[in-house]
Amino acid sequence: MRISVEQIRRKYLRHDKKFPHVWCPGCGNGIVMGALLRAIDGLSLPKDEVVLASGIGCSGRMPTYLDFNTLHTTHGRALTFATGIKLAKPSLNVIAIMGDGDASAIGGNHFIHAARRNLNLTAIIINNSIYGMTGGQYSPTTPFGSKSTTSVHGHIEQAFSIAELAVTSGAGFVARSTVYHAELMAHLIEMAIEKVGFSVVEVISNCHVQYGRRNQLGGAVEMLQSYKDNAVTVKRATSLTEEELEGKITIGVLADREMPISTEEYEKVRQRAKERGGNVGC
């Protein structure tokens, strides 16, 4: 049986921080935080061997509440800091928590290159389709035609699909979930932490305050209900046509493959250099 909330509160939350947390009522970030803690507890990882790095935004507040080794870094650079930690000490479990703007706009280049390099990191990307904290501007994942403070007559650009971007960039493990499917999310995060290689879990989350309100999607309950109605599993999605998949969210494991790991390859290079007695040039 998974850890109860009462035990989570005693074991993993920082009690010198102010609770209840800063997020709006019904925000999906809290559900993701719970799922992450259940996954870490399910794997029985010691608290000192987990590092959480986050960028800026609503999701960036998450590590400040949690009692692990944590970093709250600059905008979009959660993965770069995580890369540095992993290269310095490969035994640590490094988890980068990012928002959609953080991962795909400001840190877009870092994201695709971290996936290409295939370091043994875990990236959890909370996709709420908008820049929530800064006032509801459109982000790279805002769907076509939806309204935000910087697209009051409807958005004119197409949205990124973060999970598919990670698949094509060469990440070892890519999965997607929604905040309604919190039990699945905890399971996917567990698989992602266990996976040796760059693993991405994209979580479709609700921002009913900045996004739902402007697009008549209702509150937290209505948005969670829409995730329940629109989610299809990867297995079922293969039997559906492209028109049927319009507006649906594919959840589950999208890619799981073995690729050369950057840190291991680097160790091999060091070994080869040592065998040559440091005389690498000739």
Partner: peptide, 13 residues
């Protein structure tokens, strides 16, 4: 309710 509470306010025992 316990795993979907964003505020860690519910425990089922």
């Amino acid at each position: 309710c316990e795993i979907h509470c964003p505020d860690f306010a519910i425990t089922v025992q």
